[in-house]
Amino acid sequence: MRLFLLLSFFGLASCVTKTPPSEHKIPMPGKQLAFTRSKGNCLACHVIEDGESPGNFGPPLKAIQKKFKSKQQLRQQIWNATQFNPNTSMPPFGRNKILTEQEIDKVVDYIWQLP
């Protein structure tokens, strides 16, 4: 018990000292990753749910499960859309490391369940 307390104290303390309260240190949920300009910025080109001032380069993102057979296939579109359409304007988020692999997984989870 004492050990546990001690550990959690250090755990907390290191959180406070090492991680400044800036946004990007706290992992973002998928929706936020998709909306944030410096991250996915998917809204730049797609209408998504309640996202504000979306662009219109690409189709609205909804009912994705009707278009993609699996999450893996959706992931490939986001990882590098040019493999399906060499002339696409959609940035290769995985190939060019715009998002990390974990961030892409979260975006996939979010986009996959959109009604």
Binding site: N41, S53, G55, F57
Partner: peptide, 22 residues
């Protein structure tokens, strides 16, 4: 660039469209 655009993608292919509110 990291976002993999050409000038033409924005100003030819997508001229008149919106990128976010722009």
């Amino acid at each position: 660039g990291q976002l993999n655009f050409s000038c033409a993608i924005c100003h030819v292919q997508n001229a008149g469209k919106f990128i976010r509110s722009e």
